[in-house]
Design a protein around this nucleic acid. Structure first.
Length: 530
RNA sequence: GGCCCGGUCGUCUAGAGGCCUAGGAUGCCUCCCUUUCAAGGAGGAGACCACGGGUUCGAAUCCCGUCCGGGCUACCA
């Protein structure tokens, strides 16, 4: 997998997740966050959440709340990051509101953790680079650049900024800027020779400096772009490992040159493979990649519901995400958070992208659902019943008890919590909805009306109604009609549930109670005769 | 186009020159269990390890080339 010894880091492991609040993140992004979190936990280090809000124009209201809420919901808590005060200082119009209860009182000693609040530090470093002749003001406008790009395109040449202002006197440039002229600052990349970068997963890559150009490190709006701010922060925050998705590989030479210019030791770069959609493209809203929670909308307006809201368990999503793109080295797949944390390592991260496998997630979720205690399952399932209006928003104790007895009957069949209403609705209706096919197959048959009548009579005499007494009574009636196995249960099942599949018939009847069962039987007899 | 990264069953993966006639999981199929479904148990189909050359007694594993897929190529991240 890799030729590098990735174990036993030499300095304190500090990793970071540094999203930009410019939209709602999908699970691919959270997978990267999870790996960062896991690496820090594995080595007893720190996991930092830093918000890269240097692109003020693209800020999306409430995406900050979504990022923090989703991370915390998954159990990916940060040791350092946005706190009550720093979030309160934000412009709520632009950022939206974050529930203060989610935020720590003190964000950490390396803050602020919002890049928009770190401008003075960038300015200081920018000046240093300018003074040292490692960066320069450039006066082209975006339009100028566009023209140059088009011209290069026509000549079929790759576009590289020509470095026109590379040697422009700093004093003159400052005068022009002071005079109100708009400018950017660009970083002087080496003009030739090799640039070496090392990725923990892929080893060394040598880049030809002639393919690089002087990139912008301060935009016209006064904010530095990612290439600058992110690297400065990674250094200032003593980040040991940069885990980021693989589309950053090509800009790594920029980043190492920046570290070099400052004389800083660069962190270890770990480019994690992307999580792909079924189209083998990077997961995106377009392809319907689900968010962790909440709802996002595809470009065509179609809603995509968050995994957690679809009834996937936090633990299952955590587990699934951890094994897509990482393997502990053996065949273990179902692991607790503790086991994942204990076993996580860089060596197990795959260098090739993985497809988001919904089927496997669903299977894993079923495993977790089955491991839930009955009480916990009920707790998690109730909201879905309420949302489906099978239960009132504030159920009475007896409604609750009834719902609970019904929910536990479906535990072994459940794959996602949101299946609960569809699986149990007939328990709540006055009478079930009878599927025509099932009626034709099991009710409208010779002798069924008589059989069901006898079942009703036998059940009517049951004193202590429970699954066991109900079974005895039903079987007694069945034997009288020479019925056994499916012949015995199926007509009754269809009569009381309206369908052919479901939990154990006697358990179901036990939970329903005699009144419901007898009413349904009476109704079914009519259908059978009709 | 240029530069870069990747390529083992449909999917997620194990694999660090002989343990590989390639293992596990998921999905699919069959059977068992069983009042149905599910769960569980037992099987099965499914990968000429992208392709072609080399190195080696021996290669999925090392080297080269090709192809395919993906990423980047912004005053976005």
């Amino acid at each position: 997998m890799t030729s590098h010894d990735l174990t036993a880091p030499t300095r304190r492991v500090r990793t970071r997740f540094a999203p930009s609040p410019t939209g709602f993140l999908h699970i691919g992004a959270f997978r990267t966050a999870l790996f960062s979190f896991l690496l820090a936990r594995r080595f007893g280090g720190d996991f930092i959440l830093r918000i890269e809000d240097t692109d003020q124009a693209r800020l999306v209201t409430n995406s900050l709340a979504d990022i923090i809420g989703s991370l915390l919901a998954l159990g990916i808590g940060y040791d350092e990051g946005p706190d009550k005060a720093s979030v309160a200082a934000l412009d709520a119009e632009k950022y939206g509101v974050v529930d203060p209860a989610l935020l720590p009182d003190h964000g950490g000693d390396y803050g602020p953790y919002f890049q928009s609040q770190r401008l003075p530090r960038y300015r200081e470093l920018l000046d240093q680079l300018l003074e040292e002749g490692k960066a320069y003001y450039a006066f082209e406008t975006k339009e100028d650049l566009d023209r140059m790009r088009k011209a290069a395109d026509i000549r079929k040449e790759p576009f590289r900024y020509n470095g026109k202002y590379r040697n422009y006197p700093l004093g003159e440039a400052r005068d022009r800027v002071a005079g109100g002229e708009s400018a950017v600052i660009r970083f002087k990349m080496p003009t030739d020779g090799p640039i070496r970068t090392v990725d923990a997963l892929r080893g060394e890559t040598v880049w030809d400096a002639r393919t690089q150009d002087d990139f912008v490190i301060l935009k016209g709006d006064g904010f530095p772009p990612y290439h600058f701010s992110s690297m400065v922060d990674d250094h200032d925050m003593a980040i040991s490992h940069i885990l980021r998705s693989e589309e950053w590989i090509s800009s790594t030479p920029k980043h190492v040159c920046l570290f070099d210019a400052f004389g800083w030791e660069p962190p270890i770069f770990v480019h994690t493979p992307n999580v792909l959609g079924n189209d083998r493209k990077k997961l995106s809203k377009r392809t319907g990649a689900p968010p962790v929670k909440g709802t996002i909308y595809k470009p065509n307006g179609e809603p995509v519901i968050g995994l957690l809201d679809q009834g996937y368990l936090e633990d299952a999503v955590f587990n699934y995400l951890s094994i897509t793109g990482w393997s502990p080295g053996d065949d273990t797949e179902v692991m607790t958070r503790e086991e994942i944390t204990r076993r996580f390592n860089l060596e197990g991260i795959s260098a090739s992208p993985a497809l988001f496998d919904r089927d496997k997630l669903t299977w894993l979720n079923g495993v977790y659902l089955r491991h839930l205690s009955p009480a916990a399952l009920v707790e998690r399932a109730l909201p879905y019943l309420i949302a489906a209006k099978l239960l009132p928003a504030d159920p009475t104790p007896s409604e609750r008890t009834y719902a609970a007895s019904v929910i536990v009957l479906e535990q072994e069949r459940l794959k996602t919590l949101d299946e609960i209403p569809g699986l149990t609705d007939f328990f709540f209706y006055p009478l079930p909805e009878y599927a025509d096919k099932s009626v034709a197959k099991w009710l409208k048959k010779v002798g069924v009306a008589e059989y069901l009548t006898d079942v009703a009579v036998a059940l009517g005499e049951v004193e202590n109604w429970d699954a066991e007494t109900v079974e005895t009574a039903t079987r007694g009636a069945g034997e009288k009609h020479g019925r056994e196995k499916g012949d015995l249960t199926h007509p009754v099942r269809v009569a009381v549930t309206g369908r052919e599949v479901g939990p154990s018939l006697f358990d179901a009847m036990g939970a329903m109670g005699s009144e419901r069962v007898l009413a349904r039987l009476a109704h079914a007899v009519e259908i059978a005769r009709g």
